[in-house]
């Protein structure tokens, strides 16, 4: 891995996170491919997972995203970036988990019109910055559908039976809004902000959630991945810095 600095003179007072650690193929990024919807699974009242067959998919790393495009009969198109939810496989399948955004023209189509057999277009995978190849101990912090790229990492670690340490802190308003609730194991701590299961604490992600994670600091420390709304990302990244996480090892993906 090489790190490049633009200026020979300037040394930033706070180091930025290291550059993305994987080479991105410009060919796969440039080409639109047809993706055929094969399955829809409901996750929560507001989120569902959409599975696609993309036969020429070049493969991806957990944490990467794609661009998806819908085209109307008059040629109008709408395109959005979506994180990949599925672990890499070699069979040309990818999964996205989408919130039903109020008034969202793309998520609205998925949640009200889409059915297996429908075809959309995708390009990607895109960006290596938020990718996790499974090499370093990973501390994952997500809120709402911000858990999607993090779940790809959890699934990847399981699928490959990696023994690299991984912890997931996932924040949701309540248990019924916790995406992938049935899939979590000992690596995951859910944080419920409005309503919890009987007897469970309710409240915002705080220093107390991070303390045990930093008490069991793995060799070489954690690589932190934060995903969620901007407000959540700001909050979580400040907690991480306060807990001693080096600022150049915090990778942030914000909705938008």
């Amino acid at each position: 891995m090489t790190e490049t600095t633009a200026s020979p003179v300037f040394v930033p007072p706070t180091r930025f996170a290291v550059p993305g650690r994987i080479a991105v193929s410009n060919r796969t990024a440039a080409v639109w491919q047809t993706a055929t919807l094969t399955e829809i699974r409901r996750e929560t009242p507001h989120a569902a997972t959409f599975r696609f067959a993309v036969p020429a998919w070049a493969g991806h790393l957990p944490g990467q995203h794609l661009m998806l495009r819908l085209t109307a009969g008059d040629g109008y198109t709408a395109q959005r970036h979506y994180s990949l939810a599925s672990a890499p496989d070699d069979e040309g399948h990818v999964e996205l988990t989408l919130d039903h955004v109020e008034g969202g023209e793309v998520s609205g189509w998925f949640h009200t019109r889409a059915r297996p057999g429908d075809r959309v277009e995708v390009r990607g995978p895109l960006s290596g910055f938020f990718a996790w190849p499974g090499d370093r101990p990973a501390l994952l912090i997500g809120a709402g559908s911000g858990v999607v790229p993090l779940m790809s990492m959890v699934r990847h670690r399981r699928a490959r039976a990696l023994d690299v340490p991984l912890r997931l802190l996932v924040s949701a308003r309540g248990p019924e809004e916790l995406i992938y609730a049935r899939e979590y194991g000992a690596e995951t701590t859910p944080v419920f902000t409005r309503r919890g299961p009987a007897g469970a604490p309710v409240g915002r992600l705080g220093a107390a959630h991070l303390r045990p994670v930093f008490e069991e600091l793995p060799a070489g420390g954690w690589e932190a991945y934060v995903c969620g709304s901007n407000a959540f990302a700001e909050h979580a990244s400040r907690l991480l810095v306060a807990a001693g996480q080096p600022v150049d090892r915090i990778r942030i993906e914000r909705f938008g």
Partner: peptide
């Protein structure tokens, strides 16, 4: 052109200031 079945999209706006593939984020 690969038309997506059932997709109509938001109301078309005649906005010459909007580059291709972009949407108006409004106040966001």
């Amino acid at each position: 052109m690969n038309v997506t079945r059932g997709f109509t999209g938001r109301a078309r706006v005649d906005n010459p200031g909007l580059p291709p593939g972009q949407y108006d984020a409004g106040d966001d």
